[in-house]
Nucleic acid binder design. Structure first.
Lengths: 230, 230
DNA sequence: CGCGCCCTTGACCAGACTCAATATTAGTGG
DNA sequence: CCACTAATATTGAGTCTGGTCAAGGGCGCG
């Protein structure tokens, strides 16, 4: 059973801190590495991320894991089929979410409307992820992954490089194992590919875990092949 | 520009046959191989498949294609970000759809509610597809793919085998190239893998294109590793 | 009957995986 | 603050799954 599992505002678990109580939906704090829900749990809630990052993953019986979605601030988490969560959810960083009881969410017109829009946005991100997993090389996958942490860049409406230097300073809150499980690669391949990108001068790897400096965002973007063709 | 591209019930294109006009939404007929919309087109409509199958795909600039979604009857098609379709859509079979103008759909409470539910359903299917693409072997991917055409089986609520023979007769409306582009494999690997599954006795390949007989659905399901663990 | 498309099969190749050793970073307690 | 340990990351060597290139087969359709 998930550690975060109640359905209404009547109980509060020790590891949850209620900050604000909007008409519907309560604000919760989720600690890094804490499980939000398990695959198969009854899907009583839908979560909107206010701050931080969650991940959704699925496992095969032999232990293979696929991180199917990385959920940053502003996105939704807790989609379900037949009343049960599909995939488990865990916090990659300390995270603040608004949890909506499903029944209440579904009763609210404006909320439903906003969530439908947001679900579409995330749906398109899943399309991109499928493209990465199915057709991109390890180098392209890593480049695409890094571009995710530059939300202002690489999209249809990309602002382009800011003169004169087109660099960026990233903090990736995923371990090599998690990056691998997200991109369909092994730890070793992730490590090797990041090293190769660094040797090519595209990025530098900081000494602290998760620190990556992008020397040329546009060149990284080109390597990601995020191009919207067809 | 897509061949199907108008936004309201005022115009009808030659290749569209209006069958029924519900209060909102019109019924269209889309011929096999016909394009429904192109990636990047303004997303004026959302489609609900009544009969037949569509596919959504994305291309990279060098010609690599990923079919990101296969959309059967009952599902929705035409999700968008920032007002533009993400991915191109083409009919795999002769298809009948209801096309809703987005503005009208978004103005209708019941429709929005139904569509949000359906989008969630499809979201979970995208999770499964990501699992296939990221972590499954070619044999597991083909098995998983075939199980898609047995919607009554392999799910949480699987009815189990009907005695005494647990066989099935499938008609797959995708070419080897399309199966490959859906599963992140090449034509040759798809062909070899299907041959291997046939040699192992799990399936038989019919002489007509797309005909596949499953000798033992449960064994195929086991090979697909559709198991809902974690 | 013959052409074209799709599928199959074979031989070879390469990118990513596996197994293993080592290095680096983070965390803990003195 | 430093020493020690555990966890994570890097690197190397060898293997293997799936990709590439190429040839041949079968089916459909005019």
């Amino acid at each position: 059973m998930a550690s975060v599992s109640y359905t209404g505002p009547t109980r509060v678990f020790a590891n949850e801190e209620v900050r604000r109580r909007s008409p519907i939906g309560i604000t919760l704090k989720i600690a890094k590495r804490q499980t939000v829900f398990h695959s198969g749990d009854p899907a009583n809630r839908i979560y909107e991320i206010i701050e931080g990052i969650l991940m959704v993953f699925k496992m095969l019986s032999d232990g293979r894991r696929q991180i199917v979605e990385i959920v940053p601030a502003g996105w939704l988490c807790g989609f379900a089929t037949e009343g049960h969560y599909d995939g488990s959810c865990e916090a990659l960083t300390d995270t603040i979410v608004t949890a909506y009881a499903r029944a209440e969410m579904e009763a609210s017109g404006p909320l439903r409307s906003r969530f439908l829009h947001q679900a579409e946005e995330q749906f398109c991100a899943m399309y991109d992820h499928a493209m990465s997993l199915g057709r991109k090389s390890s180098e392209e996958r890593i480049a695409t992954f890094l571009m995710r942490f530059l939300p202002a860049r690489g999209k249809r409406n990309c602002a382009g490089p800011k003169v004169p230097k087109d660099d960026a300073d990233l903090h990736i809150p995923l371990s090599r194992a998690e990056i691998g499980d997200y991109l369909g690669l092994t730890i070793e391949t992730v490590s090797r590919t990041i090293t190769a990108l660094a040797k090519s001068g595209l990025i530098r790897v900081g000494s602290k875990h998760g620190e990556i400096y992008v020397n040329d965002v546009c060149r990284l973007c080109a390597k990601a092949r995020t191009g919207r063709n067809e």
